[in-house]
């Protein structure tokens, strides 16, 4: 019961190196798994392959034991928080949150009640009638979370969820994410290039380098026993930076 990927491969150009070159790992149920690596390592592509937004050239994706590799994105039941939030600008915050329910033909009243519950959970009570353009970056981020959670996803996939925010808001939202995760217990995959963030939030880490898994394990294991020199170099940055999130 978990997210399992086996030997995932995806190539975007004929001649260049593949974006994802045989990635296998297991993300344990109920935990936050951080997918960490420098930009261009294939992190986002792996997440998009798990969501079904990309089709793999090879490899399998298993969600809680079900092979979903050939299942369209609509059927996979994943919650995805995009880097740029991708809130629907023409809809109110509430309409954004219940979008997934409305397309499943949940009656408007029932959906609206659920939206207000979720907005309460993400601390946006009373914001339902606003437009996304009227919200701050951190507020938009939380709307994106509420929208992803509304459909009761089997897993939560976060693609650089704090990437567009400034440091203070990142810190606050990181703590908020931990509390939220504690409440929901959702199996969560968090893509980030920010080592302190990954070490602070994730219970399990997968480090990608050049489209391959360089090492996987708990933050403690990675810190004590990095697999090789290159990985050590990449992770060393962590100890030098103030670990404000830890």
């Amino acid at each position: 019961m978990s997210v399992v990927v086996t030997d995932l491969r995806r190539r975007f150009t004929e001649d260049g190196p593949p974006a994802v070159a045989g990635v296998s790992f297991t993300a344990p149920t109920g935990a936050i798994t951080g997918i960490l690596g420098p930009s261009g390592a294939g992190k986002s592509t792996v997440l998009r392959l798990i969501a079904g937004l990309e089709e793999p050239d090879a490899g399998r994706v298993l969600l809680h034991g079900d092979d979903v590799t050939d299942m369209p994105v609509q059927k996979r039941g994943v919650g995805f928080v995009f880097q740029g939030y991708a809130l629907f600008g023409h809809l109110s915050v509430r309409e954004n949150v219940i979008f997934g329910l409305r397309v499943r033909r949940v009656p408007r009243k029932e959906a609206a009640t659920r939206a207000d519950e979720l907005l309460h959970r993400v601390q946006l009570d009373g914001f339902g009638d606003r437009r996304p353009s009227e919200l701050s970056g951190g507020q938009r981020q939380r709307v994106a979370f509420a929208r992803a959670l509304a459909v009761n996803p089997r897993v939560l996939l976060l693609d650089e969820p704090f990437g567009a925010l400034d440091a203070g808001v990142r810190l606050e939202l990181g703590e908020w994410l931990l509390r939220l995760h504690h409440e929901t217990g959702l199996t969560t995959l968090l893509v980030t290039h920010d080592q302190p963030e990954a070490f602070a939030l994730a219970e399990h880490l997968v480090v990608l380098l050049d489209g391959k898994v360089a090492q996987a394990g708990t933050p403690a294991e990675l810190r004590e026993h990095p697999a090789d020199g290159r990985l050590e170099a990449f992770l060393r940055v962590v100890s030098r930076r103030p670990r404000h999130l830890a």
């Binding site: 995805f80 995009f82 397309v103």
Partner: peptide, 22 residues
């Protein structure tokens, strides 16, 4: 933004629903 349509698809909207609603 392609993410808008991807977001609709992840939330379970069909192509037609995505076109009409997003």
């Amino acid at each position: 933004d392609a993410e808008l349509e991807e977001a609709a698809a992840v939330l379970g909207a069909s192509r037609l629903q995505t076109f009409i609603r997003v």
